[in-house]
């Protein structure tokens, strides 16, 4: 069974990929390297595309695949750590969510997963969400956190477990 392999030394956690993988019943494992790999596809963008190809069910409620419009922004614009570049992307999302509770239609879809995953991974976003400057984004983000936090927690627990195992291993070695 193919699983997602996440390097704990990667610059950003691929939360979008991990959440999508959950909906495809694909497991993940953490490794002590700096990239993410899924079924031979290396790097966040390639791995996400490969997962979608193998498991189109990750579109969830989005039968028309409108989520595709958000794929590239989710893997680029919403991950940038420069606020001047991030801001126009957030303005666009804020306005998209004026009359929408989900990114597409009236239920969860791949667009929610990937854009949320990008914001969750972006270190600039914690304080922006908390401040409520983007009122619609904060509402949407906190709502999806009710569903997605399980995956975030599972990832963080796996990282802690791996780190504990490594440090125990080192101690045993030096002793």
């Amino acid at each position: 069974m193919t699983s997602v392999s996440v390097g704990t030394k990667a610059p950003l956690v691929p939360y979008g990929l991990l959440i999508a993988a959950k909906y495809a019943n694909v497991d993940f494992e953490v490794n002590d390297f700096d990239k993410v790999v899924y079924n031979g596809a290396e790097g966040y963008e390639a791995a996400v595309k490969k997962l979608i190809e193998d498991h189109p069910e990750v579109y969830l409620g989005d039968k028309s695949k409108i989520s595709d419009e958000w794929l590239l922004p989710a893997m680029n614009e919403y991950l940038v750590k420069d606020f001047k570049k991030l801001n126009p992307a957030l303005e666009k999302l804020e306005s998209h969510l004026h009359f929408r509770s989900y990114m597409v239609g009236y239920s969860l879809s791949l667009a929610d997963i990937l854009v949320w995953g990008a914001l969750r991974a972006n270190p600039l976003m914690g304080s922006i969400i908390k401040s409520g400057t983007f009122i619609n984004i904060s509402r949407w983000y906190n709502f999806l956190a009710l569903t997605f936090n399980d995956t975030v927690d599972a990832y963080l627990a796996a990282v802690n477990k791996a780190k504990a195992a490594t440090s125990t291993g080192k101690k045993a070695h030096s002793a």
Partner: peptide, 11 residues
């Protein structure tokens, strides 16, 4: 409802 998707913050 400005800060909550559903009125009681449920999923």
């Amino acid at each position: 409802l400005s800060t909550r998707t559903y009125i009681l913050n449920t999923a």
